[in-house]
Design a protein around this nucleic acid. Structure first.
Lengths: 205, 205
DNA sequence: GTATTATTTAATAAACCTATTAAATAGATT
DNA sequence: AATCTATTTAATAGGTTTATTAAATAATAC
């Protein structure tokens, strides 16, 4: 009856999260998850019944993190430009915490678009409202002549696009260039600043 | 002894290409490929021996297309800005022809980085040389004061980043917004222009 | 027309996979 | 201690998968 997750239940969730993010739904077996945990394979099903349900629990959580970082509002005291900078950087940092997120996200939705439908129901129209609010703020800047004509749609697409590339390309990059983890981390931070620069320039009237 | 591909061999390659691009290596079975072609499953192995070899043949070809569109040079008579615009647009158009390419590319390298190693051997150091040439051209513009300090590395990353996003997000976008194929195509063309605009602005001193 | 070679099929081995079952163990309750 | 419940395991059914084999068919050569 308790909502508390037992240690085992949590360990399974954690191992599954790691493996699903690394290799995706299809390429990860419940046998493998059990092996990672060090338990019997049937236990995975005992706690989560099906591989699908286990995956969904993880997927929803991760989607929230990704979307949330973009739509979160705050820092009302700052200027438009400062707020935007903060948003871009915090979105970048969320992905840096969980670098597999973008590829995971796009891959799984591609291979099973139905998952998106259920996500849509869960998150409801909160995004719609936040988007409208963001568009309002943007329109104000446009009216003031600080920003060229632009939809929040396009702006978000540009932000996501620039912010995910280093992480998408990480495996490719590391195989080709044999770059060290430390240097790669420096590259990331440089790109974060570069992205802010590119986006702010792109908004100038 | 002949190098000619029989009709059947070609049909298998074509079906495999379609399915691998749609669903990836792991999620596509040789049984499914055979079904798509309308032949016996053993035939797939008769012509290509293993699923891996069949995949590799396709993967290499597609990588070439993707990389090639970026590194191709030409239009020597045009200005730097015009050449860059052409490059961005032609890269975008190559992806539009084959919209699954970016996700395919990043997914498969992520799930099996070893593939990248073999690709590296095949393409050799041609990219290295083209990159050096591009860097030279860029440096000239920087020296002339037309472009701010910038590496060709960063520039290419920005181009790829902006150019792939519409295609990566296509399945997600279409589920959420129920946008028509026609409107989506318009969106793409608008983004192509927007990308050129963003990149040219990002280079200004 | 028969022999020879190439293509295609049906059948199947061996390895996996998910999900379920019954039995074993551990923990809590009286 | 005995009973009841929750957790964990071993075993396995019923699928799928890749790859191989031998047999059947088609194509080519002599």
């Amino acid at each position: 009856m308790s909502e508390e997750k037992t240690d085992m239940e949590f360990a399974i969730l954690k191992a599954a999260t790691k493996l699903f993010l690394e290799k995706g739904f299809k390429a990860t077996s419940t046998t493998e998850i059990a092996k990672e945990v060090g338990c019997n394979q049937a236990l995975v099903h005992y706690y989560y019944r099906t591989k699908d349900k286990l995956f969904d629990a993880i997927f929803e959580k991760k989607i929230m993190v990704f979307i949330g970082s973009l739509l979160k509002i705050g820092h009302e005291e700052l200027s438009f430009e400062e707020k935007l900078t903060k948003k871009i950087e915090s979105h970048f940092d969320v992905i840096k915490e969980d670098p597999r997120l973008p590829l995971f996200f796009f891959s799984e939705i591609n291979s099973n678009p139905k998952r998106m439908e259920s996500i849509k129901e869960i998150i409801g129209d909160l995004p719609q409202m936040v988007l409208a609010q963001m568009q309002k703020e943007l329109d104000e800047e446009i009216a003031k002549g600080n920003v060229r004509q632009m939809t929040v749609h396009d702006l978000l697409m540009t932000i996501v696009s620039l912010n995910i590339i280093v992480f998408l390309a990480e495996p490719m990059f590391k195989t080709i260039t044999k770059i060290s983890d430390e240097d790669f981390s420096k590259l990331q931070e440089r790109r974060k600043k570069e992205n802010v620069e590119i986006i702010l320039r792109s908004l100038k009237p």
